[in-house]
Design a protein around this nucleic acid. Sequence first.
RNA 1: GCCGGGGUAGCUCAGUAGGUAGAGCAACGGACUGAAAAUCCGUGUGUCGACGGUUCAAUUCCGCCCCCCGGCA
Length: 312
Amino acid sequence: MAAPPLIILAGPTAVGKTNTALLLARAINAEIINADSVQVYKGLDIGSAKPAEQELALVRHYLLNVCEAHESMDAGIFVKLAGEAIDAITARGKNVLVVGGTGLYIKALLFGLAAVPAINPALRDELRLKLEQQGLASLRDMLAELDPEGAVRIRFNDKQRTMRALEVVLQTGHPLAYFYQSQVKKALYPYLLWGLELPRGELKERIAVRSRQMWQNGLLAEVEGLMAGGLDPKAPALSSLGYRQALAVALGQMNNDEALAQMINRTQAYAKRQVTWFKKMDGIKWVNPEKWEDMVEPSRDFLQTQSRKTIK
RNA sequence: GCCGGGGUAGCUCAGUAGGUAGAGCAACGGACUGAAAAUCCGUGUGUCGACGGUUCAAUUCCGCCCCCCGGCA
C-alpha cells in the first residue's frame, strides 16, 4: 500500500497552531497528529498549551498523552506511534494533518531515522551517573577512544550528543556514523508543509502574554502535583520550558518573578530556534494564521492529486 | 545641607599606575539523526553622567555641576 499524503502544519510556539489546525482539519476532512514533544506527556497540560476538552471534541487528535511524565519520549517512539496513527486515520477514511513545533519529530517522520537499536535504559542511566560524578571530560575521553570520528564531529561541550554517541557505540559496538551510512534519505510520505508565521515582535508579545496566563492558571501547582505524585525532578519532561522554571520555584531556587521572566525569555529564544529549523525545510510555505483559509484550496488540491496517483 | 558609596553595552557589574574598554545575562545569527520545549556554536563602537582644566593624549588626574543609593541632620 502506498504511503498516504500528509499535510503538515508547523511553526513556532504560541503562533496559533492549535486553533488554526482545528479550522484547517475541518475544512479538509482531516484528523490531527500531534508533533509536539511535550504535549505527548500525561499531566503536563497547562505548560504545554495542550488543546482543551472542547477543542479535542471538535476533531480527533492522536499522540497526546501517550506517555507517563516519568517516562522518556524520543524521536524513535514518536515515529513509530505516528505511523500507527497515520494508518488508523487512513483506515477511517480521513486525511492526515500533522501539527507541531518539534522540528526533529517532523523531520524524522518524513525522512526516517537511522536504524539504531533501542538503547538499554540501564546503560543510559550509567552514563548519566558518570557524567554527574566524573564530569564531561571523562565521557569525552571515552568517546575519543571508542568513536574517534564522532569525537571530532560532536562539539566538545555538547554533553547530550556526546552521551548519545557513547551509548550507541557501547551497546552496538558500532559508531553512530555506521548507522547513518546505511540510511536511505528520501521522503517516506508525499507531504505539503505549511509554516505559520507572525512578525517577531507580535510573536514575542503573545509568548509573554501566554506565559503569564499559564502561571496564573496554575503551572506551579501542576508541577507541585506531579512531584507529590512521586515524579523525579530529573525527569526529562520537567526540563522543558516553563516546567523547568516552575520546578525551580517549587524547590525554592527561584522566586515567582524570576521564574516567569526566565520562562518568557527562554520561550522567545526557543521560538527563534524553531523558525531557524523550519526555514531550511524543503518546500515550506509560510502563512499568517489569520489567513488560514489560504491553505485550504492548495491542501485539497494536493490531497486530490496524491489520491489519483495512488489509484493509478 | 553634611558624610559616605556610586553613575561604563539593553540589564548587573569589571577595568584602564593616562594611549578611547570587557565579562555574565539579554539581543541577534547559526547548528541539529531516539531527552529536541533538549543540547550546543558564533557575533561586543558603547557621547565610559555633563561641562571646563592639565596633557602630545583624559573614561582614567584636577575643578565644578547634575543624577541615584545609604547614613546624619
